[in-house]
Simulated assay, not measured.
Amino acid sequence: MNFNNILFETENGITTITINRPNKLNALNIETIEELHNAFKKAEKDKETKVIIVTGSGEKAFVAGADISEFANFSVEEGKQLALKGQTILFDFVENLAKPVIAAVNGFALGGGLELAMACHFRVASDNAKMGLPEVSLGVIPGYGGTQRLPQLIGKGRAMELIMTASMIDATQALNYGLVNHVTTQEELLPLCEKLATKIANNSLVAISTAIKAINANYKDGVNGFHTEIKGFGTCFGTDDFTEGTTAFLQKRKANFPGK
């Protein structure tokens, strides 16, 4: 599968997807969103891939936002369809992916960039990272899930302030808010993400996939997350990973999970 705007690499069970539009600060255009969907779908189906890292090329930006030139003249209906399709094929898709996705946030993560990072299962930032949802300064609101995921991650009041002021926060503030899990130097960003990915990959990916589904259920209207957890917990008892994990524990050895 060939891509124009992203790089795709798999090594040691970790697939790294790099948004590669440095001359546009990796801004998300329609083509890039579709390519990202295909890349994530490919990684999810790939038996070798256990964890996915997504990042941006260059030193300036993870993703500096959406490509405004593409939708500046859109009608109301075209705007709705832009948000609907984007949420469906990328942002919601990533959030509900069966395999863990880590966002390695280097530099600017603004607008659609921050929304992509928030759709990932957790985030690690470089110390030069700047994050924000500046859409109201353009006369529009975040359309790729920002009004929903930001309050979930940092609380309603902080999200209201950040969105209404169109302000940026730095990596330290993002860490204090709980928006990112770790902050490191730009040089150590990918190595740290790879270290975390390797630690994740040593565990049962079947159980991790079930945990992702249960955690996400808590944030869906009309879904009882506790019921999802109970069902998922029970399902795990029928997996080969559960048999291997418990047997290894009782035999006092390291588990070698078959992934099924």
Results as ranks from 00 to 15, higher is better:
Gln148His: 11
Val101Gln: 15
Gly56Met: 12
Lys42Asn: 14
Val51Arg: 13
Ile52Val: 14
Lys99Asn: 00
Gly139Ile: 02
Ala72Gln: 04
Ala39Pro: 09
Gly178Arg: 07
Glu95His: 01
Gln186Tyr: 04
Thr165Ala: 05
Pro22Met: 04
Ala61Ser: 03
Phe93Ile: 00
Asn29Arg: 09
Gln152Glu: 11
Ala166Val: 06
Lys85Cys: 01
Glu115Met: 07
Lys252Gly: 03
Lys252Trp: 05
Ile68His: 07
Leu133Lys: 08
Cys120Met: 11
Thr165Phe: 02
Ala129Met: 08
Asp92Pro: 01
Lys24Asn: 09
Met1Glu: 12
Thr247His: 05
Gln87Met: 03
Ser204Pro: 13
Ser167Thr: 09
Asn2Ser: 12
Asn26Ser: 05
Glu35Asp: 11
Asn256Asp: 12
Thr15Pro: 00
Ile215Trp: 13
Gly145Thr: 07
Ile208Trp: 08
Thr49Asn: 14
Gly157Leu: 09
Asn2Phe: 01
Glu35Asn: 13
His37Met: 07
Ala129Gln: 03
Gln152Leu: 02
Ile68Met: 08
Asp170Ala: 01
Lys130His: 09
Ala117Asn: 15
Phe3Lys: 15
Lys50Val: 11
Gly56Gln: 12
Ala197His: 06
Ala109Gly: 13
Ala129Pro: 06
His182Ser: 04
Asn12Asp: 11
Phe71Ala: 08
Asp241Arg: 04
Lys80Thr: 09
Asn12Gly: 06
Thr246Gln: 12
Lys85Arg: 12
Leu82Val: 03
Leu153Tyr: 00
Ala83Thr: 07
Asn202Leu: 14
Glu77Gln: 08
Glu59Ser: 02
Lys50Asn: 15
Gly222Ile: 10
Ser57Gly: 08
Lys260Thr: 15
Ile6His: 07
Ile215Tyr: 15
Val180Asp: 02
Phe93Asp: 00
Glu78Val: 08
Arg149Val: 05
Gly58His: 05
Gly234Met: 08
Asn2Val: 04
Pro134Asn: 05
Gln148Trp: 04
Gly58Ile: 10
Leu97Gly: 13
Ser75Gly: 03
Thr18Leu: 10
Leu175Gly: 05
Thr228Ala: 12
Glu244Tyr: 06
Ala72Ser: 03
Gln186Arg: 13
Ala83Trp: 09
Ile163Trp: 04
Gly245Asp: 02
Val54His: 10
Glu34Leu: 11
Leu90Gln: 01
Asn216Tyr: 10
Leu138Pro: 14
Asn38Lys: 07
Ile33Glu: 11
Gly157Ser: 09
Ala43Phe: 10
Asp221Leu: 13
Val206Ser: 13
Ile53Asp: 02
Glu35Lys: 15
Glu44Arg: 14
Ala43Val: 14
Val206Pro: 03
Gly238Glu: 00
Met131Lys: 07
Ala27Val: 00
Asp46Thr: 06
Met118Gln: 05
Asn181Trp: 04
Thr184Ala: 03
Leu84Phe: 05
Gly225Cys: 03
Ile208Ser: 15
Leu150Gly: 05
Arg253Ser: 12
Gln148Pro: 02
Gly107Asp: 07
Gln81Phe: 12
Asn128Glu: 13
Glu44Tyr: 12
Thr32Gly: 00
Thr246Tyr: 13
Gly79Ile: 05
Pro142Ser: 00
Glu31His: 09
Val63Leu: 04
Asn29Cys: 09
Ser126Trp: 02
Phe40Cys: 07
Arg123Gly: 11
Gly145His: 10
Pro22Val: 04
Gly112Val: 11
Thr55Cys: 11
Lys50Gly: 13
Ile89Cys: 01
Leu25Asp: 01
Ala43Thr: 10
